[in-house]
Design a protein around this nucleic acid. Structure first.
Lengths: 254, 254
DNA sequence: CCAAAAGTGTTATCGATACACCCATGT
DNA sequence: ACATGGGTGTATCGATAACACTTTTGG
């Protein structure tokens, strides 16, 4: 396919270095929908400015581990530390930086000649209530509805990366639902938890069965507190106490 | 991906490219134990030759995708095509190539100045009966017992990569046992399958329950054939028919 | 008193586990 | 005939799934 180049085996590989970057797929949950954090990218072209979106990411620095680079990217972008972060897949199609628009943008922003970039994908989960810096000197970030990914053409292969991240989070939540607590407010209701669960897994859980199941999670604590200012019966609040959580999940994921 | 957005914290990132490689953790099963395919590495030093082992791997070529590079590595090493291959994790600790012995070897074999290598780990499963080329011009490969990994110091961070691969295959087999068929001969007995399963998951399955469970796998066919030349009642043979297998696994992994 | 969502238990079904004896073959 | 591993069924238990009415609150 993109492999014109099949000579090497006999001869030595070319002394060729791609760049290496990390890209972060950051998810949030607004109580209704799954959100993804994207960065505005504006490219000036002959016939005016062109604007689209991209995942937050960066070429790794010289003495930086991959996890460190991802942590840095998120910290620079949001001002936050201690963000839940999992490496999920690496992407190395030689053509992933092949779009002239992307190459053009890369050279302008990095002031480097960029041949090719291998990128390592990270999943990041953050509580959407955390106040993050959406506007900074060079970037504008915003939460977008996951649904809108289908109709948005992101930079590079970022659409595929985001899709892969979605598959990954589904898989993980099925096995270890405690990931969900990273997306919920510190105190949350059972309904919020269930909605998020069903949203990600595309299921419709039975209210009672869900409650029974989820109350078995170690570290999930019912509070003596209810949600305020609701125009109906106030729901109880719960909290997830990481310290009391066992890392061992039981065979059903809890 | 690249985000020069933020005023790059204190100093700007150096225009720095690590090399990118793939490393393959190749497992086999000899009927008794899990095996890993390692390559002999000999380094001439002032006080004689030093010899150890490494994972098969290679720096990626210029126009090569990651999967393609892994496929190439395995093909060059074994002469085989169509090897089961899954990317599982990338490793980018700046110090992973920090050992002087490793640096030295890298420069000699690649004839390049190598600063740093980010590597993408692949899990490969092969039927141990396939005749592979163990000796070629530059490499000697051999199957080693998985157990012996604990006492062998591999090159670079290859011990950690192999451990991570083991964790990965355990996880995968728990969810999608059909991976096991990649390790078994085309025709195999129920006992072989169970032994392999228990070996990887470190469990002891009940013979009858295992049989019941496993016979639900779509694509697993009982043959009208038994194993020959056994000094006891000849066991039935089974075969896994990929074409009849559904990609959808049921909730218990089958 | 109406609307909206919260909260709560029991039964049925299904899958997982535990368990022991006879069978076929080669020596 | 014996040693070795192969092959088979049932009963119990626990987990998941299905299912509907009453409660609380604000407007």
């Amino acid at each position: 396919m993109t492999n014109i180049h099949m000579s090497p085996p006999p001869s030595a590989p070319l002394p060729y270095n791609p760049h290496v970057s990390v890209d972060c797929v950051v998810f949030g949950f607004d109580g209704e929908r799954l959100k993804i954090l994207l960065i505005e990218r504006t490219i000036s072209e002959v016939n005016g400015n062109y604007s689209d979106k991209k995942l937050p990411g960066s070429i790794i620095y010289q003495d930086e581990d991959l996890d460190t680079a991802a942590t840095r990217v998120l910290n620079e972008l949001t001002g936050l530390k201690n963000i839940f972060l999992h490496q999920f897949h690496s992407f190395g199609d030689p053509q992933r930086t092949g779009n002239p628009r992307d190459r053009n943008w890369l050279e302008k922003t990095t002031k480097m000649k960029i041949g090719r970039i291998v990128t390592v994908g990270y999943l990041a989960l953050i509580k959407i209530s955390r106040k993050i810096i959406f506007e900074s000197e060079n970037t504008t970030a915003r939460w977008y509805d996951i649904e809108s990914l289908g109709t948005m053409k992101l930079a590079f292969d970022h659409n595929s990366i985001a899709e892969e991240a979605l598959r990954y989070i589904r898989h993980q939540v099925m096995l270890q639902p405690y990931m969900l607590f990273e997306l919920l407010p510190r105190k949350f209701t059972m309904t919020q938890l269930r909605n998020l669960y069903d949203l990600i897994l595309e299921t419709k859980s039975d209210v009672r069965n869900f409650q029974k199941k989820v109350l078995l999670i170690e570290g999930l604590e019912q509070l003596d507190e209810v949600q305020k200012n609701v125009p109906y019966r106030a729901p109880r609040l719960y909290r997830f106490n990481k310290k009391k959580a066992t890392k061992e999940r039981n065979k059903h994921g809890f």
